[in-house]
Each structure stands twice: as structure tokens, then as C-alpha cells.
Design a binder for these strands. Structure first.
Lengths: 336, 336
DNA sequence: AAAGTTACCGGAAACGTTTCTGAAAACGTT
DNA sequence: AACGTTTTCAGAAACGTTTCCGGTAACTTT
């Protein structure tokens, strides 16, 4: 590839490169007339400014990095789209990297993005481990950082999360109201705050209604995980009356297994999902699920980051807690 | 952010910057001993090479850009993961951009990536329009390009596609074998080759069995599109006996509407999806669908690109056609 | 011991921008 | 007409690398 540079234009027009640069950067000290002349010639020659060179001298990139743990569920893509909308408006480009649920890859991704001089980072953790010390380091170096969804506990950075406590509470209470006493809680990895909050919600709902809490099983967020757990429950003859699943993918995987094994949903076993996907309303029975404002989560994260980018220097970390909704559908309701 | 540079190390060790550079680039003319000394000091100081500066002087980035039209279906994420696997192995970083099914945004994305000196581009089209002249231009300028899935017709570039003709043919024939004569064909946008090939497969299957072809409706690839079309068919009292859908999302959207309106699947209406998603096996009735090797598609695209990157200069565009499979499930089978 | 090789390293140019400094030209003021 | 201002621009340094060129020192060869 041959690129047209600012020098080519300068030579063509017999002006200095600095003049051409000024023409493009809308600087005050340039005659409108020559500015037009330069812009015209530049577009004739098909010139496009080289962002790489600009990054180098300005020490900033107008790029924002987004790191997500997985691509399987539509959750993260939706968050990204929300963030993109805001960032595009402010002339930032978005670089997306995916960590495949691996902490090591996540660190590698983060370093790559930092090396590429992103102006800020929006991150959802793949897990908790030696990535956290690195993020500590980044915050100390004043790299603008925003975590979302799967956030670290002890890092002083802006975060946007879902109110997992509250909605785990409501979802559990909903199941209790249906008369179920033996409610299995499928949790994400234990080290995520998200899991702890849901656990608290689940526990407190039981306390409120003076019911002993049921079992808890840790689980990933994929359909495969759900399938595996369900098969396990059945083979051990350990099927509960109701389940609060880690997410929809997990719930749908379980439903499939239960249905195949002759269980009726919700008559034999009731199920509630989390972070609702499009599928919830389309499978049968339709799946009760906690709906999260994914798009808004992305938007909020982007906005928090923009704030940091604007008032650089002083910056008080902020945590935004987003509200949701429980969409009650067939999978958890028994008509009595 | 303050970055440690090659100069800092040079100063610290009283060597020239060129020497430090050599130490990192594994060049022959450096004494192993000083090389060690430099590497040690560098890691002590937390030095990381600045890829931006390197890009500028080398006029290459070791970055590959991937542009996809949408994030809703898991299809593209899976392709990306396949491509990533190959590209990572060859030390390329992957930059992902998403065009939101907009041709204008797609062009903008492509230009951004080119400006950022990606070494190559892997693209799936959002549509056909004034993006194509731009890609023509890029190929003339020798920018390595690989299209996949939604590919342009008349551009001399490497492509990897699915054998849409063959599997549309088989899927249609499968429906014909079930005894259905009135088969509605839900197609993607008309200007995509993919759509044309499927159309041909659909037509030829009818010809082979001497059945007049049914209707065709154009449609997007989202669940919403499916819902809308199904509602339309019902309201116009125009429901066919069987449907070959544009993809699974579309099929699932339709199934939902039909079920809600009292249609039995497959007794009243049979449905076959395309580019199978995880959901196909999990909804009820389970959905017959054409399975595409998404992961392999990404791998193949990456490999074609790598070939171009290696033998730069001479390069004969190549088209890889991937095979698939028809997974027959409940939604299309009537027991007779 | 002189000449030729080789191994190693320093210096400087280059990549394409932005930005700082300063100077020429144009203008206004008295 | 002399001076001060403002406008407009040119030149050069800088960003952090790689790479080319050349030079010294050590080692071979005769």
C-alpha cells in the first residue's frame, strides 16, 4: 500500500508541511483561502491523515479498548453496541478484544491495547487472578478504566453493574411465592462480586420468608454448562423443585435436558433465567428471566470513561448500579 | 500514562538506542552477553516496545482487521474465533469492527482500519453498494483482502463461502420428500450472492422433482424480521405448508408467531432454518437446520489472508467453498 | 607483522504527523 | 514615515522505533 502523505501535498502546493497540518486541524492562524486550497488538493490526491503518526506525537490515539470475556451470549455484543454509540459520537474509535474466558489472554489483550496507546479501557473480567494487580498498576498510572458487569472488588475505578442483589432477591421471592421451597441456586464463579451479590439476594429472600436456603452449584455461563449440571442432577436423583439459573443460556441448556428426561416445566421443575436473551420469549415453555439493560450498560460505561477523559487528573471513581426487570413467563408459574 | 522507552534503557546502560533495538529484534550482530544485559534491564524497568512507533517506520502493523455486519447472531462471533486462533499463532493481533448492517458504517470501518495500517482485511459485507468500488481500489493498491460469507461478486479477491446452492437444494429436497409442495423461500437481500445461490438450489430442487416453485420473500437475518413476516403471512391468510428460512433467528421468530396463532409445527407448517445456531436443538419443536462450519470458515479466511501476506506481490485470488450438513429435527418431519 | 575478516556497536536518517519558535508581510496608528 | 500589531506562514524539533552506514576492535590468515 502506498499512502499519500502531508509532505506530498506540501510539495505539490509549495507550502510547508506545518501549513498543511494547520489546514487540517482547523487552526486559527491560517488564511481561509489557503486552507481551502490545501483541502481541495488533498481530497484530489486522496489524502487521509495517518492516525499512527498522530498517535506518536500526540501520545494519544482516540481509540478506546473494550475487553470482554466471551462472544457466545448476545449479552456482551449488546453492551458493546451501546458503548459504541456513545463513543462514536465523540469521535472515538472502538477496538474490541475477546478473552475467551481466560485470565491470561485477558491480560495479553489489555497489554496490547495499552501498548497501542488506547486512551481508555472498558473491561469485563474473565475471572479474578493476576489480572487485578495489573489493573491496579494501570490505575496508578492514571490510565482511564471502567469495569462493567464482571467487576473487581477492590480496585479504585469506575464501575457499572447490574443490581444483582435486588433482582436475585426478587427472582427468588417470585419462586417462593409460587410455593416452591426447594430452590437450587446456580451461581457463576465464586470470586465474582456478581455471584456474591446474587447469593446474598437469594439468601435474604429465604430469610424473609423463613425458609431454609437450598443448595448452590457453581457454573459457567454457557449452554453446555447448563446441560452438564442438569444431567448430573438427574443422574444423582437430586432434582430440585425450582432453579434460579446463572443466565439464560444455562437455563435453556437445563430445560432441554429436563424435557428430554420427561420432566414437565414448570409442573415438575420451575426455572428462572438471568440476563434475559432474545430466546427467552421464543422457546417453550417461555422462560422467566431477569432482564438487564445491556445497551444502557454499554452507554453508561462509555459515559463514565468519557468523563475521565475530559477531566483528566482529578477523578473520583464512580459506581453506577443499573436496575432491571423480572419478566415472568411460563417456566416458573404454576396455575393453582 | 508515562511509557518507558528504548532511549531510557539506552541511557541507563550507556549504549546506543540502535543496540537496544537490536537486542529486542533478535538480530545477529549483537553480543549475546550485552543482549542479555539489555533484556534484563528492560524488564526491570518495565519496558514494552511501542507498536505505534514500529508501525510508522515499518509501514506495517501486525494487525488484521475483521469487519462484520452484525453481532446479534452467534454466527459471526464464531467465525471471528476461528480466525483469531490462526492469526494469533502467527503473531497477528485482531481488530474487530462491526458495521451494524450499514454500508456507510462499513466503509468508515474499513477506512479506519486501513488508516491504522492493518496488514490485511477480512470482510463480510453489510450489503452491496458503494463499498465495492472502494474495495476494488484497495485490491488495486495491493491491500490483502479476504471476503467471507457475504461476499461481493465481481471483485478479484480471495473468498471463503458456504456451499449455499447445494444445501439450499438439499434442504428444499428434504421438504419435498416430506410431501410438501408449497414451500416458501425466505431469502436474504437479493444482491448477495449467497441469496442467489440459495435461490438456484431451491429452484433446481423443484425442477428435479417437477414441482412448480413456491413464493419468495426477502428478509433480514434477525429474529424480528422473522416475526414480522410470519405475522404478515397470517394476517393475509397466506400461510404456506413449509418454509425454508434465511437463518435460524428468522426461523425461530416465525415459529414463535405461528405457535402463538395456534399453528402446529410441523403438522400445520414445517420449518427449516439455515446456519444452525445452538438454539436449534434446544427449542421445541427442535429445528431442522443447515449447519455451517463457522469456526472453519474463520480459519480458512485467516489462512487465505496469511498466504497473501507471505507471498506478497504475486497472488492469485482463491475461493474456498465449505461444505455443511443438514440436521434434520422435529420441525420438518411428519411421521406418516 | 601486515593485511584482510569478522563481530559488535554507535550515529543518524527515516516513518508522518503536531507543535513550538520566530520571521516576513500586511495592516493600523500616530 | 516610523513604529507597533496582527496575520500568516516556514522551519525545525519531537514522538519511539527500525535500519542503513560506517567505524573500531578483535581475530584470522599469510
Amino acid at each position: 500500500m502506498k499512502y499519500v502523505t502531508i509532505k506530498d501535498i506540501a510539495k505539490e502546493l509549495n507550502v510547508a508541511v506545518s501549513t498543511v497540518s494547520r489546514a487540517f486541524n482547523d487552526k486559527y492562524d491560517i488564511k481561509p483561502e489557503t486552507r481551502e486550497r490545501i483541502l481541495k488538493k488533498a481530497s484530489e490526491m486522496g489524502y487521509r491523515p495517518n492516525p499512527i503518526a498522530r498517535k506518536l506525537v500526540q501520545q494519544r490515539s482516540y481509540n478506546i479498548g473494550i475487553i470482554i470475556p466471551e462472544f457466545e451470549n448476545s449479552f456482551f455484543p449488546q453492551v458493546i453496541m451501546g458503548a459504541q454509540e456513545i463513543l462514536y459520537q465523540h469521535n472515538y474509535q472502538v477496538l474490541i478484544m475477546q478473552s475467551n474466558e481466560s485470565i491470561d489472554l485477558e491480560i495479553r489483550n489489555a497489554k496490547t491495547l495499552v501498548d497501542n496507546m488506547v486512551d481508555g479501557l472498558i473491561i469485563s473480567l474473565s475471572g479474578v487472578g493476576n489480572n487485578l494487580p495489573y489493573y491496579e498498576e494501570l490505575t496508578e498510572k492514571k490510565m482511564p478504566l471502567v469495569f462493567f458487569n464482571r467487576v473487581p472488588e477492590n480496585i479504585e475505578a469506575s464501575k457499572v453493574v447490574f443490581d444483582d442483589y435486588k433482582w436475585a432477591f426478587f427472582a427468588t421471592e417470585h419462586l417462593i411465592h409460587q410455593g416452591f421451597k426447594d430452590i437450587l441456586f446456580i451461581s457463576g464463579a465464586d470470586d465474582l462480586i456478581l455471584s456474591k451479590n446474587r447469593q446474598r439476594g437469594y439468601d435474604d429472600a429465604h430469610k424473609k420468608h423463613r425458609i431454609p436456603t437450598g443448595k448452590k452449584i457453581n457454573c459457567g455461563f454457557s449452554m453446555k454448562d447448563g446441560v452438564q449440571i442438569a444431567e448430573n442432577l438427574i443422574s444423582k436423583n437430586n432434582v430440585p423443585r425450582a432453579i434460579l439459573a446463572a443466565n439464560d443460556a444455562c437455563a435453556i441448556g437445563m430445560m432441554r435436558v429436563f424435557k428430554d428426561s420427561g420432566f414437565k416445566i414448570p409442573e415438575d421443575i420451575a426455572i428462572v433465567g438471568f440476563s434475559e436473551t432474545k430466546m427467552a420469549a421464543h422457546i417453550s415453555p417461555t422462560l422467566t428471566s431477569v432482564e438487564q439493560p445491556t445497551y444502557e450498560m454499554g452507554k453508561a460505561a462509555a459515559q463514565l470513561l468519557l468523563e475521565q477523559l475530559q477531566n483528566k487528573g482529578i477523578h473520583i471513581p464512580q459506581t453506577i448500579v443499573l436496575n432491571g426487570r423480572l419478566n415472568v413467563r411460563e417456566s416458573s408459574v404454576v396455575l393453582s
